[in-house]
Design a protein around this nucleic acid. Structure first.
Lengths: 255, 255
DNA sequence: CGCGCTAACCTGTATATACAACTACCGGGG
DNA sequence: CCCCGGTAGTTGTATATACAGGTTAGCGCG
């Protein structure tokens, strides 16, 4: 199995992300400068620059010309993979993650699931339901379908120890995701599993994930509305466009 | 206000985005290669590489080593600005957008608003409340605060014709945004404005937007849970996962 | 006719170098 | 004491160059 070498800039990124998520580097802390990375890691400055620049784009760090590079103070990890891995998210808050496996069966894709995965009804899928807890309080019901031929060992996994997301990302590179967020009243099963109050809304994230252009997993992530919120952030506009604002105005005037 | 020169790689990106959004380049079409850009635009290959690589990260194009760079086939515009402008979103669905201005007053920042904008309580802000309708059905209550000294002409605007978002982006380049999504039961005013059923949850997007490193506007966007959902998608992982090479190879063998 | 090899072109990565602009700090002169 | 300017360190950008590896088309040979 000749796997392509991991690029040097990616190794630098991974190393810094590791130092952040392990808690060694805390929000506001200074990250090694480009020149320090050049000396410590024996790379060229352009390679160090690419690593730090991409970490900036991904929200892990912030850079100020003349001062340095610093760990972001809000949710360094959540906006890249967002709800992707709730165990990491809980761990990042310094809390304890536990999980109960409610169901883990082979089934056939039907209706919404078949449609979402672009397969015919009857296609074999694995269906996994897991309740995730933060310090013992239920915070997510993960209701996931996985194409059987893509992850044939799914039923042998212990999802109380490794989340389905973590397992799936370990066996295949997920290249793209789509998510839909809805607010609604939960059905009784979800309300009971999440220990929710009467008429408490749930926040549902419905997520499809692709690998190599093929939709391979479909999940509904149910969260209690009173105890959960979804955080994200991004740079809506490129840094350097004075001109773009004008274009937007023209466009709205045209109507 | 001395505006910084626009970097060359950004100019290349803007030029290609313009050719895509004007329809000159259609999904699947080939984009000029790095070497063609070197000759045509008189830049170094690294600069052309950076432009095309960032366009890849942003979802505009896809690149295949050995073949070339091609315009992506799905969407191009929506994932960058997401919920940014509801009027454009409605127009993109081919529906009619209307808006009613419920309030448009000068006020003083207090509590959550002052905290979100990082100003002292008492700082002058404009407070605007607008109900947005899609084909006449209310679909969003926009409850927005704007720092008064940043957009002094706010009260003179006709927000029934141009949304607050569009107005704000027309007067200043917004550089960063943070949003929090919550599901909850609406208070009575919101329920009435959105014409919601009893116990129907609302989906609230709480959004802060920065310009030049300073938080300048804070908005609560209330949506009826039964009639609205939030869509987004992204590439959750970096290009170069260790495992990916193997899968790619399998795919090419299959052909 | 078909197979394999090669040449041309493409992307992906990496380095060395250069200049501009910004920031913090320190020391000297008023 | 305060301001002013220099200096060192930092990020941001741009170039020229190099090599590795994927893809395609075409050509020649068996």
């Amino acid at each position: 199995m000749s796997r392509t070498a991991i690029p040097r800039y990616q190794q630098l990124k991974d190393g810094i992300i590791e130092r952040i998520s392990s808690g060694e580097l805390r929000p506001g802390d200074r990250v090694p400068s480009e020149n320090e990375l050049v000396l410590a890691e024996s790379v060229s400055r352009m390679t160090a620059n690419r690593a730090l620049r991409e970490l900036t784009d991904e929200g892990y760090v912030e850079r100020v010309a003349g001062r340095g590079t610093f760990v972001s103070d809000f949710r360094a990890q959540s906006h890249v993979r967002e709800v992707q891995n709730i165990a990491e998210e809980i761990a990042a808050r310094g809390h304890r993650h536990t999980a109960d496996v409610i169901a883990r069966v082979q089934a056939e894709a039907r209706g919404e699931v078949a449609q979402a995965l672009h397969v015919d009804a009857g296609t074999p899928v694995f269906h996994v339901v897991v309740v995730h807890r933060e310090n013992g309080t239920p915070i997510q019901v993960e209701d996931r379908y996985v194409l059987a031929d893509f992850a044939p060992d799914t039923l042998a996994q212990d999802f109380a120890r490794q989340t389905p997301s973590a397992y799936l990302t370990s066996i295949m590179p997920l290249t793209e995701a789509e998510q839909v967020v809805r607010a609604r009243l939960p059905d009784r099963e979800i309300r009971q599993l999440l220990d929710m109050a009467d008429y408490e809304p749930e926040l549902v994230v419905i997520r499809r994930t692709w690998a190599n252009g093929r939709a391979v997993t479909f999940a509904r992530l149910h969260h209690p509305g009173n105890r959960y919120e979804l955080v994200g952030h991004h740079k809506p506009y490129a840094q350097h466009d004075a001109a773009r604002a004008d274009v937007v105005q023209l466009e709205s005037l045209k109507k």
